[in-house]
Design a binder for these strands. Structure first.
Length: 367
DNA sequence: ATGTCC
């Protein structure tokens, strides 16, 4: 065991031992002074997900992983949630896995990115846990903050979860090719080089979410206002050092959303600054996986049909024509979001502003 | 997670 590790979780929150082991192991990497596991902590490929790491001397790119800049953007659309026609919307959401037909050069220019970062993936969701989801307001818990954010409970929301696609992957691969899983001294040229490319991947990922949202909105003839865009895979400057977040949202960038699975609610929450340091100014980014991807299909196997997976217990529709992915991302494969949120509340890290209910979860229409 | 392994 290591004494620089903190896990934010109550007794009723089940966290697999392998994830805890991974957290302790990664906390021993060169220069890591503190490590925090959030309530959605779960095992990854050597690196746990739902964790934050701080060092004043070293950066460890492989702690961030390949999806640099992955995050969640929440949009308030101008669609009246009560009048929203589900079946009609489902019919209109086509062609969204194809390359974006818009002007990449001008989009990259406006984002301040070099033009060689154009590519077919820009404006597409990707795979894994990425999605675009329409949601309606289920409950308002903090009326004052809800109003302060300019939110309207009668409107439909769009949550986009995506990242830097092939770009972050390439940045990560280049680092691994040169340094394997080694960390970088923050005084080194190699770190400066990584950071430049990391920051580009962050900006690219945010632009990607922006374009994705606009493509979805255009299909429905809707307009929308961006309410938040929050990274959960990032390396950022923090207190004379560097903070690595792997599946961890920042607690110092205003309200964030913590979605459960497609079959559970999304929580819009406000970070509480008083106790933020306990968790390295970081928060959970989701429910966390209960089952590894590799076993989800076998576990659900004959218990559920594809048709059943296309509808959730909350009445939401799931657009996922990838028959493997629809199993991997089944609600059963995820932990309870309610436990994650209540653990953060009990730790004094957040207050809940509102609860959002998924209406359409778009994954992919590519077979 | 991946211009996704052949």
């Amino acid at each position: 065991m290591t004494n620089n590790v903190q896990i934010i979780a109550s007794a009723r929150n089940w966290i697999e031992q392998s994830a805890i082991d991974q957290l302790h192991r990664t906390a021993q990497l060169e220069g890591i002074e503190r490590a925090v596991g959030l309530p959605d902590l779960h095992a990854g490929r050597g690196i746990p997900i739902g964790a934050a790491f701080w060092s004043s001397t070293h950066a460890h790119p492989h702690l961030i992983g390949n999806d640099i800049g992955c995050g969640m953007a929440l949009w308030q659309t101008d669609i009246n949630a009560g009048k929203f026609k589900l079946d009609r919307a489902v019919k209109k959401l086509t062609g969204l896995d194809q390359p974006w037909a818009g002007n990449q050069i001008s989009a990259l220019e406006q984002a301040g990115l070099p033009l060689h970062l154009a590519g077919e993936a820009l404006g597409t969701i990707g795979g894994g846990n990425h999605f675009a989801e329409f949601q309606k307001v289920e409950a308002i818990i903090d009326d004052e903050r809800f109003t302060q954010m300019g939110l309207d409970k009668s409107l439909l929301f769009l949550l986009v979860h995506s990242g830097s696609r092939g770009l972050g992957h390439a940045v990560q691969e280049d680092h691994t090719r040169r340094f394997n899983a080694e960390g970088l001294n923050i005084a080194s040229d190699a770190f400066a080089h990584y950071l430049t490319r990391h920051d580009q991947a962050m900006t690219w990922a945010r632009l990607n979410r922006d374009i994705i949202a606009n493509r979805f909105l255009a299909k429905l003839g809707a307009d929308a206002e961006l309410k938040l865009d929050i990274f959960h895979n990032s390396l950022t400057r923090h207190r004379d050092g560097w903070l690595h977040r792997k599946g961890a949202a920042p607690a110092d960038k205003g309200p964030i959303v913590i979605p459960g699975s497609r079959g559970s609610m999304t929580y819009l929450v406000c970070p509480r600054p008083e106790n933020a340091d306990v968790a390295l100014h970081s928060l959970a980014h989701g429910a966390g996986r209960k089952w590894p991807r590799s076993s989800a299909k076998a576990r659900l196997g004959r218990k559920v049909t594809l048709a059943e997976l296309e509808r959730t217990a909350l009445g939401g529709r799931v657009l996922c024509e990838d028959n493997q992915l629809i199993f991997e991302e089944a609600p059963q494969a995820y932990k309870d979001i309610e436990t994650v949120v209540s653990d953060l509340e009990e730790a004094g890290l957040i207050t809940v502003i509102a609860v959002l209910r998924p209406v359409i979860t778009y994954k992919t229409r590519r077979k």
